[in-house]
Amino acid sequence: MSLSEKNNLHPRNLHRDRYDFELLVQTNPKLKNFVQKVKVTDKLTIDFDNPKAVKSLNESLLMHYYHVQNWDIPEDFLCPPIPGRADYIHYIADLLQGNHSEIPKGPSVKGLDIGVGANCIYPLIGSSVYNWSFVASDTNMKALENCAKILENNPEIAKNISLQQQLNSRFIFKDIIEPQDQFHFTMCNPPFHQSAEEAKKGTIRKLNNLGLQKNVSNKTLNFGGISDELWCDGGELKFITQMIFESAKYPQQVMWFTTLVSKKEHLKSLMKVLEKVNPVQLKVIEMQQGQKNSRILAWSFLSENQLNHFKI
């Protein structure tokens, strides 16, 4: 293992090594506008506090590693870190593999991404790496329209991905999972904060920790366009609680229900909620990307034997 390797990422994650900016610029020459040399080490980097630079990096990573062309998102939507998003996909692959010798691949493996956002990241990576098929849902029509643009530019990947709007924001699975549907997994990166004010304070705190508060503009703190990505009434805990109770209505239609849990202190409460719906399988998968710790909460209403015989 090289000194530059990020050994806290999943072993199959393509981003365990530090970004090769020379290679990425070859793939996407537009990235060159944001690449700069670190004076002390003479190594190449970008300004990770510049949203345009991060978006260009994301576009380059998706082009080079996942063969996604012309990826873009509107300015008022979140720009996700690709390595962490890829980790979630790889850990789901481990869940699906279970006791089998190989990871199940191909479009017969069907996932449901709850709250896909405008970036379409999870379906793009899952389809590219494992050739899985996805239903990608969101309440925000503008987000889905942008996903549709991305898919239009990537017909080979698009054939595995369908978009669906959740018309009733009070529900998560209802009207998305139909009686005839069978999913091998669901996944979600739930809204983190309880309110717009809490989201704003969280960003200010993060910028203070980075010593960047003096550079904050009103636009940086304006979450109006991305409120459904950053916060919801009751925040992460209430959202996942709702998800757990709804999941109990589809016990035979999904192999594994999963969600990210950002706040470790929420796990205790969520475990109590899960006790009420009585899943047969329950797992907490720890993840780490740099200084950021997160975890996947996964549960299933199927026995080990049923999981092994779930049609793929």
Rank of each mutant, 00 (worst) to 15 (best):
I114V: 12
P80K: 05
N160M: 04
Q213P: 00
N168H: 08
S128D: 01
I125Y: 02
A86W: 05
I150L: 06
N160H: 09
V129E: 15
K201Y: 13
K174S: 14
I92M: 08
G106Y: 05
T186P: 00
G98P: 02
L163N: 06
P179D: 13
C188W: 01
Q182W: 12
A136K: 00
L95Y: 03
N99T: 14
P83Y: 08
A118S: 12
V129P: 04
Q97F: 06
P190I: 04
E152V: 11
T186D: 04
G202Q: 08
N160T: 12
A143E: 09
P155I: 11
D175Q: 12
G126N: 07
P123V: 08
F192E: 02
N168D: 15
L78R: 06
C120Y: 02
N146I: 00
N168Q: 12
F134P: 00
Q166F: 06
K206M: 14
N140V: 05
F171L: 07
S128N: 02
G111P: 00
N119I: 01
P191Y: 10
A86S: 13
A148D: 13
L207Y: 15
R85L: 02
A118T: 07
E102I: 13
P80Y: 04
H193L: 07
P179V: 10
L207Q: 15
R205A: 14
Q166I: 11
Q165F: 09
P123Q: 08
G211E: 06
P190V: 01
N154V: 06
K174E: 15
A158N: 08
P104K: 06
N99F: 11
K105R: 13
N154K: 09
A136T: 07
I177L: 10
K201M: 14
N131W: 05
S127I: 05
N119E: 06
D94G: 12
L124P: 00
S133F: 02
I103L: 11
